[in-house]
């Protein structure tokens, strides 16, 4: 009890002493990602989807990094979105009227080579390559009868942060209406993520497994900007 009073007292002192630290110019925003394949919300393992190429597949895992969220003002907030786990992320953004929403799909180069990280970047999240340092920016796993890999696996671990093999992509989305960020209301932007666009012209039978940086990963990453669209603002 005494401890709590002291902590509260300290908090008041801190606010008095540092008025500039708590800004009034930030508002909260929630991004909710809805993952679709063949225009249906994806279901883990059980449902069979079809690539635009006509190859059947199921999905067991879909995770990716979203960072530097904002419109022209990148922040250091980094989130790991999990289609079968936390698919909503909450952040603070500078107050204002937003016409567009922009974020990086992936993790900035520097954070790929700066040693052990924590939070969303903790190697515990199973998104860091142990033998060829760097983050998997986007991970899609499942099975397909078209896959010649062991157990008909699909493993699309798209990563690479250096030079030509960079796989992070900036996504800029037009908003259907003006988004007002302020302290009065926390809006939720619902973003649809279309896996049909991820596959685009790619063939599962040709490349069921992509687990190293390089041309294939880069080509897959080029589809990232096609996958995202804003459905609504709540």
């Amino acid at each position: 009890m005494i401890k709590r009073i002291l902590l509260q007292a300290f908090a008041i002192v801190a606010i008095c002493a540092l008025p500039g630290k708590l800004t009034a110019q930030n508002g909260k925003l929630i991004l909710k990602f809805v993952h679709l394949a063949n225009e249906k919300k994806i279901i883990r393992n059980d449902s069979v989807y079809s690539t635009p190429n006509g190859e059947p597949y199921t999905i067991s895992k879909l995770r990716y990094y979203v960072s530097e969220i904002g419109s022209g003002k990148p922040s250091r907030n980094i989130f790991l979105v999990d289609a079968f786990g936390p698919d909503s992320i909450e952040m603070k953004l500078p107050a204002g009227h937003y016409q567009q929403l922009s974020f990086l799909l992936g993790v900035d180069s520097l954070l790929n080579c700066s040693g052990a990280q924590d939070g969303a970047l903790d190697p515990l999240k199973d998104m860091f390559w142990t033998w060829n340092s760097g983050y998997v920016m986007f991970k899609l796993e499942g099975k397909s009868d078209s896959s010649h890999a062991d157990l008909n696996r699909i493993e699309q671990h798209i990563g690479g942060y250096k030079g030509e093999n960079k796989t992070m992509r900036r996504i800029t989305l037009n908003l259907p209406e003006k988004l007002v960020i302020d302290q009065k209301k926390t809006h939720t932007v619902v973003i649809e993520v279309d896996l049909d666009k991820y596959w685009n012209k790619a063939s599962i039978s040709a490349n069921p497994v992509i687990v190293i940086p390089g041309t294939l990963a880069k080509r897959a990453a080029d589809n990232f900007p096609l996958m995202f669209r804003v459905k609504s603002i709540l």
């Binding site: 790929n112 080579c113 700066s114 052990a116 190697p123 142990t130 033998w131 060829n132 340092s133």
Partner: peptide, 24 residues
């Protein structure tokens, strides 16, 4: 393949023919 001293142990710790363990 390892770009920073801090992330090196991840490789031997998790390799099935080295220490074969998980961080968890």
């Amino acid at each position: 393949g390892i770009n920073h001293i801090e992330v090196q142990p991840l490789s031997p710790i998790t390799a099935h023919n080295e220490m074969g363990e998980t961080l968890e």
